[in-house]
């Protein structure tokens, strides 16, 4: 068997054992359930589809939670192992560094995917079962699942990248990566998916029902500093051109 698969399988099994999978799944499911059943009050008396409301709420949750989980898992994979001394031993084995990274990535990607699909999927199913869900909100929901997974993988890759830097450079990178999460292009994709769902909502109910708070506004109300940071154009200059920086108000 290829060393990549051996490593991936071990990482996934490790994730099951040390409760990463269970923890992430439960956290995502609990928050998604809470948003679905407690947070759907903006729908109020209007006739919004519960699944569509769920999509809007979960997409806000995803933007903040998935990158955090991905960065934590990724950081533990490289820095944690290196600090414990496991990595040193691994490097003397007949596996290339690329294979180690790929194997670990595959394993962690599986953990993250399972957690996202099961956690959100359960909430989605519950929302669909308590009310009727039309094809359009199912489409929005599956787009949400897909882009949540992609967002997680992107941040897993970012964590690996950050961990591969020399330790002095590593420290500021992870918070920066997390801080930029709500501004990355993947986020705008999610935003698009959430606004798709909102459009669906708007079409089927009164305009008031889509007044659920947009994610960026949550970020701004949490941190005034983040707001000034996000508005100042200076920091955005060094970002690669392909990452679009669009504040969403």
């Amino acid at each position: 068997m290829s060393p990549i698969l051996v490593l991936a399988e071990k990482e996934f099994r490790d994730g099951l054992r040390n409760k990463w999978v269970a923890g992430a799944t439960l956290l995502l499911a609990a928050l998604a359930f809470a948003l679905t059943f407690l947070g759907s009050s903006p729908a109020g008396l209007v006739e919004a589809k519960p699944l569509a409301v769920t999509v809007v709420s979960i997409s806000s949750l995803t933007i903040f939670l998935i990158p955090l989980i991905a960065l934590l898992i990724g950081y533990d994979a490289i820095v944690g192992e290196s600090e414990r001394g496991c990595l040193l031993l691994m490097l003397t084995y007949p596996v290339s560094r690329g294979q180690i990274m790929l194997g670990k990535f595959l394993g962690h990607a599986t953990i993250l995917t399972v957690a996202t699909l099961v956690g959100y999927g359960a909430a989605g199913l519950a929302a669909a079962m308590t009310g009727n869900a039309d094809a359009e909100s199912w489409r929005a929901f599956s787009a949400l699942l897909g882009s949540s997974v992609l967002l997680g993988l992107a941040f897993l890759a970012l964590a690996y990248l950050a961990c591969s830097l020399p330790s002095a450079a590593r420290q500021p990178v992870l918070p920066l990566a997390y801080g930029s999460s709500s501004l990355s292009s993947t986020t705008s994709r999610l935003w698009a998916c959430s606004s798709q769902a909102k459009a669906a909502l708007a079409r089927m109910s009164s305009p008031r029902s889509c007044s659920s708070i947009p994610p960026m506004r949550i970020a701004y109300s949490i941190s005034p500093r983040l707001r000034t940071y996000a508005r100042s154009p200076a920091w955005a200059d060094w970002l690669p051109a392909r990452i679009s920086v669009r504040p969403f108000f």
Binding site: K10, R13, R17, G85, C86, L89
Partner: peptide, 10 residues
């Protein structure tokens, strides 16, 4: 290695 470490859960 000196102070060899393994995954505790395995």
């Amino acid at each position: 290695p000196e102070n060899v470490a393994f995954h505790d859960q395995m």
